[in-house]
Simulated scan of single mutants.
Amino acid sequence: MSGPVPAAGIRPDDLVVPPGATWQQLAPELTALLRGTEGGPSAVVLATSGSSGTPKRVRIGAAALRASGEATAQVLGGSGRWVLALPTHHVAGLQVLARSALAGTEPAVVTTAPGMPFAAPAFAEAVARLGAGSGLRLTSLVPTMLSRLLDDPVGVAALRTLDVVLLGGAAADPGLLERAREVTRVVTTYGMSETAGGCVYDGVPLPGVRVRLDPDDGRLSLGGPVVAEGYVGDEGLTASRFSPDGGDRWFLTDDRGAWRDDRLHVLGRVDDVINTGGHKVEPRDVEHALRRLDAVADALVVGVPDPEWGSVVAAVLVPRDPAVTPSLAEVRSALTDLIPAHARPRRLVWRDAIPLLGPGKPDRAAARAELAR
């Protein structure tokens, strides 16, 4: 929280959000920040999830946080009351608090015992605490959470009472989206701490947000009022990723994208493409195919070094039934009509869950290290 300078690069008027921070702890300073109260904080400092390596601390100015919240309300059709299911020290969770502060409402917090996983009953209890009232009923989730809710009748019933579910943090499987949209309105979001959270909703940039694609490799840059100030204590990295251009502030991401039917499709990280035997393989295409198999509940695909192929496609799989874990040959055979031979996994492991970073982001580095062994 703001106060004496606690670490290199932190300013006295920064609101530093520590792990485990509660709504009650953050609400006064967060409200002062969003209202521009004299003597209040001027920016929020959050740690990234570390998906590109070492976690970084991002400074998000009050104007960026406010612009994000106001644009979200404009696109979704108004402000409302939120269910907080995500950690507050990650940007999606903090945004639930910021949007609540802007709306003058208090979020209903999902309470889970330490060490226990997210579960439908706790979520349903939080939804019930929203009570009656005007305005939208909303929440923000990652795909893993949404999948657990859809697998539990209690979770399905709770989702039906909500007006909007923002879904981000990781790519959502088409099958999961199809199931969820039969229950409630689901809006997919793309963004990161460096853009004050999600800034592209269902493939459409929020008002004021701009998107550029590198003509050579499709690498994404995001610009507009939601872009953060930079990285705390790392001027070199800030200069390499953040830049003013054409009246906007821009952030260079690690992701690739493409426009299809006037919507942005995020293809994956620049360094995630697998070059195997001269063929380029998109991990997400393989993951989608694997999830269509009866035995597979979830999948994470990475490339690992191989002396013959350069790299090979490898997968961490989660079984629908722990007693049914087909062999590599059986999985490859089942994929015959779904993806070409060069895209089928040549290594796989079955695990109870996909390794994750932060709130639901796949830990590809951990998967790659395990499969390389």
Rank of each mutant, 00 (worst) to 15 (best):
G3D: 15
A7R: 14
R11K: 14
P12S: 12
V17Q: 10
P19M: 09
A21G: 09
W23V: 01
W23T: 00
Q25K: 02
A27V: 05
E29S: 15
L34M: 08
T37L: 10
T37G: 06
S42C: 10
V44Y: 06
T48W: 08
P55V: 10
A63I: 04
A64D: 06
R66A: 13
R66E: 08
T72D: 02
Q74C: 13
G77N: 15
G77A: 13
G78Q: 12
S79A: 14
S79E: 14
G80Q: 07
W82K: 05
A85L: 05
T88P: 03
R99T: 02
S100P: 04
G104A: 14
T111D: 07
F118C: 08
F118D: 06
A120I: 03
R129F: 03
G135Y: 11
G135V: 12
L138E: 04
S147L: 15
L149W: 06
L149A: 05
P153N: 13
P153R: 04
V154K: 00
V154P: 10
V156Q: 12
L159D: 03
T161K: 05
L167V: 02
L177Q: 02
E178C: 12
R181D: 01
R181W: 03
T184V: 15
V187I: 11
T189Y: 04
G191H: 02
E194R: 04
V200I: 15
Y201M: 05
Y201W: 15
P205V: 10
L206E: 01
G208T: 01
G208C: 07
L213H: 00
D214I: 10
G223Q: 03
G223M: 00
V226F: 00
V226P: 11
V227D: 02
V227Q: 01
E229L: 14
E235A: 15
L237G: 14
A239I: 13
S240V: 07
S240W: 10
S240N: 13
D245V: 05
G247R: 09
G247E: 02
R249V: 08
F251C: 02
F251E: 00
F251D: 00
D255G: 09
R263M: 05
V266T: 09
L267D: 04
R269M: 07
D271Q: 14
G278S: 06
R284G: 04
R284C: 00
R284E: 07
E287R: 01
H288D: 11
D294S: 12
A295Q: 00
A299M: 07
D306H: 15
D306M: 10
S311I: 09
V312Y: 09
V316C: 13
V316H: 07
R320Q: 12
A323T: 14
V324S: 00
P340H: 12
D352H: 11
I354C: 05
L356Q: 14
G360Q: 12
P362R: 08
D363K: 12
A365L: 15
A366V: 12
R368G: 11
A372F: 12
